[in-house]
């Protein structure tokens, strides 16, 4: 069970160029990358994000480049999960394979029901999201089998496919 507050970006197609602008691709210091997270969309993000927060957004979150800097910058800002109506594929697999954060696919009811600043609790074992602020409950889409196994292992390098 993870509990935290939501920072909501009520739009589709939050791309990696705004999550971490191209000028920072040369940076591989994770703490420094965190200071520039979401800079292209929300310059206040770094000052407002807290350890354990979640990001909520619309369709195709993380579209654009393959830069692993994107989940790294969010993760090292304290973000534990991104909840979105859908994800772009490389952001999704980078988040899981590198064990940076959980990419959680939600349905329209959660997207509409959860507001910026709401406190929520996510229980992956039940595929459930509880909105503590509004006393509502939503279903998350379950992880596929391979994704669930890699997450449970703690990332791709700790996952042993031969032991399945």
């Amino acid at each position: 069970m993870m509990k935290g507050n939501v920072i909501k970006y009520a739009q589709d197609n939050v791309d990696t160029d705004v999550i971490i602008p191209g000028q920072y691709l040369k940076v591989h210091d994770y703490a420094e990358l965190a200071t520039h997270a979401m800079e292209g969309l929300d310059p206040d993000f770094h000052s407002k994000v807290k350890e354990g927060d979640f990001i909520l957004s619309g369709k195709n979150f993380g579209c654009g480049s393959s830069r692993e800097h994107a989940p790294i910058a969010l993760s090292h800002s304290g973000v534990k999960a991104v909840l979105a109506l859908s994800f772009a594929r490389i952001f999704y697999r980078n988040s899981v394979d590198g064990a940076f954060l959980l990419p959680i696919e939600i349905e329209q009811d959660a997207y509409d029901g959860i507001s910026d600043g709401d406190e929520i609790a996510i229980d992956v074992s039940l595929n459930e999201i509880k909105n503590i602020t509004k006393n509502q409950t939503y279903k998350m889409k379950p992880f596929s089998e391979i994704i669930g196994k890699i997450i449970a292992a703690g990332g791709l390098f700790k996952y042993k496919p031969d032991q399945d």
Binding site: S65, S66, I90, R93, D97, G98, F157
Partner: peptide
């Protein structure tokens, strides 16, 4: 390849797919 536009090279009849750092390291 460790770049999203790795897809480009599929024009040669290969399966060409972009990945992140962790996957390329793997």
């Amino acid at each position: 390849g460790g770049d999203s536009h790795t897809n480009t090279t599929g024009a040669l009849g290969a399966f060409a797919c972009g990945l992140g750092h962790t996957d390329v390291a793997y």
